[in-house]
Design a protein around this nucleic acid. Sequence first.
RNA 1: GCGGGUGUAGCUCAGCAGGUUAGAGCGUCAGGUUGUGGCCCUGAAGGCCGAGAGUUCAAGUCUCUUCACUCGCCCCA
Length: 430
Amino acid sequence: MARFKAPRGTQDVLPIATPRWQYIEGKFREICALYGFREIRTPTFEETELFTRTTGETTDIVTKEMYTFTDRGGRSITLRPEGTAPAVRAYLEHNIGADLPVAKLYYVGRIFRYERPQAGRYREHNQFGVEMIGSGEPSADVEVISLAHQFLSSLGLSGIELRLNSLGGPEDRPVYREALRKYAEPFVSELCPECQVRYEKNPLRMLDCKVERCRELLRDAPGPAEFLCDECRAHFETVQRSLEGLGISFVLDPRLVRGLDYYTRTVFVFQTPLLGAQNEVCGGGRYDSMVEELGGPPTPALGFGLGVERLLLTLERLNIELPAEPKPKVFVAAIGSEARAAAVKLLADLRRYGIASESDFTGRSLKSQMKLADKLGAEYVMIIGEDEVKQSVVTVRDMAAKEQRQVGMDKVAEALELDRVAGIADNSHA
RNA sequence: GCGGGUGUAGCUCAGCAGGUUAGAGCGUCAGGUUGUGGCCCUGAAGGCCGAGAGUUCAAGUCUCUUCACUCGCCCCA
C-alpha cells in the first residue's frame, strides 16, 4: 500500500491517459489559432485581492473555495480559482490593449477550488479558456461562442446544449437588484443567515444559495433578462440572430446567472447530459466592467472557461475514440554482453534517423525480449547475437508478417526507411 | 454545503451466520532444453483485508471514529 496518496480532489494523469490530454489540447490550440487567438500564460497564483475584487466578496468561490495562504513575505496569495482575472491583470500590466484594437487571448491551465470532489469535480482541475478584450460588439460574443462550439464539435461531441441568457449591463443591474429585493422583501426573515447578508449586499447571489428553503422561496424570482435596457436587449437579440444564422442552436435560460459577480450582458454555458450534476463543460460570458474595475480604461470583454476533465469524461462516456500511446517502430533485442554493446549503438543510430525504437534494459532472455517487443507493439524486432556481431549484420524481423532477414549493421536505418515492409518480405527466408 | 453507497493482491472482484497458513480471473516474472512474440500448459512472486480504536476466547467479517473514492442535490469547469 502506498504511503502517500494524491491529495483529496487531485489526480495523477498516467501515461495511458496523457495522449488523450495532448490530443484535445492540440485540438484546442489549433482552433484558437484558426480564430486568431494567441496563447497567454499567467502565474498559478496571484495576489488574493485580484480575485476577491473581481469574482466578488459574496460569491461561493471567494467565501469558501479559495486556496489562500500567506507567503514568507507576508503577502496574501491565492492559487487561481478561475482564469479570467489573471488574464485581464496581465492585459493591463503589459498594456496589451495598446497593441491591437482587440486582444484575443487563450490559455491552458490549472484551476484550484476547495470543493467536495466528485466525478467531474476536483480541487485542482484544468481549463482551456479564451478571453476577447476590447470589443462590445455582438459579433465578439458570436466569435467566442462559435469558437467553443467548433472546438466541441471538432471532437465529435454530441448532445451538448448551449444555454444563453443576458444579465444586462451596469445600468440595468441596479434595477434588477431592486426588483429582486422587492421580491424577497416579504420573506427576508425566513432566508438563511447567509442570504440575509446577500439580500443587503448582493441580492443576485441569493439565487445560487444551497439551502433548500431559500431555493424554494426564490424559485419564482424574476430573472435578469426581464430588466434589460433597450441597448442590452438589442445586443442580446443580435447575438441570438447571428448564432441562428451560423446554425448554432441554443436555448434561452432565464435562470442562468453564473456564480461570479463580474458577468454582464451575455452569459452562456455548454451542458452535457452525461455528467450528472457536473453537467457544465464550458461556461462564460461578458465582463464589460472588469478592465475598468482593475484600473484600466472602460473596455468591454468576454470569454469562457472549459473544463478539461469534464470534457474527457464526456468523450469517454460517448465512447469517442481518442489517440492511444504511441508504439515503437523497432525493438532492438540483444543476446549476450558483446551484442548488447552493438545494440546500444544500433539504437542510437535508429533514433538519429527519427525511428522510434525501444529495447530491453534488464538483460533477460531473447524469448522475454520478444514478448516485450510484442507487448510494446513494435513493428520490427532487430536481433543482435554472436553471429550477427561476427558478420556485422542484424536480423530484422517483421512482427506482423513473421518474416525476417539479415541486413548490414550500418544500413538498417536506410533499409527500414527505403524498402520498408515489402523489401523485407521479398527477401525473407523465414 | 446536505444526503446515500463503497474501500480485500498492480487491475476487476469472491470471501458463506466472526473461527485454523485470505482466494479467483487478468496482469507481472520464470519455465515448457540449442538464439525468437501473440494461443496453450506449469510454477512463482505479490495483500499491516484504507487507517485508528472498541466488542469478543477469536474480526476481512460486528460497533464507533477517521481518511479516500463514488452517486444524488446545489454550485461550479
